[in-house]
Amino acid sequence: MNKQEALINYFIRLGDNNLVLGQRLAEWCSNGPILEEDLAMTNISLDHFGQAEFMYDTAAELEEKGRTADDIAFRRSERQYCNNLITEIPNGDFAFTTVRQMLYSAFAKFLYEALSESKHETLAALSARALKEVKYHYRHSSEWVVRLGQGTAESKQRTQFALNEIWTFTGNLFEMNETDNILIAEGIAVDLNSIYPKWVFTVNEIIKNAGLEIPTQTYMQKGGIDGMHTEHLGHLLCELQYLQRAYPDAKW
């Protein structure tokens, strides 16, 4: 793999996380526990799709294969997506979605903070821009985790359950492969090991404030960035890609 290929992969990975998580959040449309929260979640979803588009546009430009952002978003097969696993798991209940969002957004916050210093100008600029939105997502979701953890016995139980179920996907956020290694050497990508302690500290604080416990099981799921996904991704892509696949020659 050369530097250019690694760069394209990296942008696609960033795009994929946003695309998949955006799609999950959009499922909450007209399903929120209160109207204001319905809007808050679709607002975050919209942010994610916006970020996905920027990342894919950049990847498409770098590729020079004549692919568009839409081609990258809608025309790949399951094994070609490189999002982290945590973004593709189903929404569950509101506690589940909120815990997942918090864990991911905390990661994204530190990631984009670091990438804002990237030697790649476009990546730095897109990251700085995404960071503003991510800070909001992080604040929103972490405050809700605390509310739910401290709220009622039921909300606490649901939130702890969510944490127990999702924790196994968190290690995967810090997995790196050849793409990362090449780009880290160039000062373009960030070594995820360097942001891991910040993430751990932050997440521990939130969980403590929420009156919850970090799960003790330590087995971490692997995959995602190399195209090895859970069985959930296929179904998500089915819906996402439907019109483009059903009418392959149509322009929308």
Partner: peptide, 8 residues
Amino acid sequence: VRDAALAY
């Protein structure tokens, strides 16, 4: 969820 928010 609403109950939890109010309780908190």
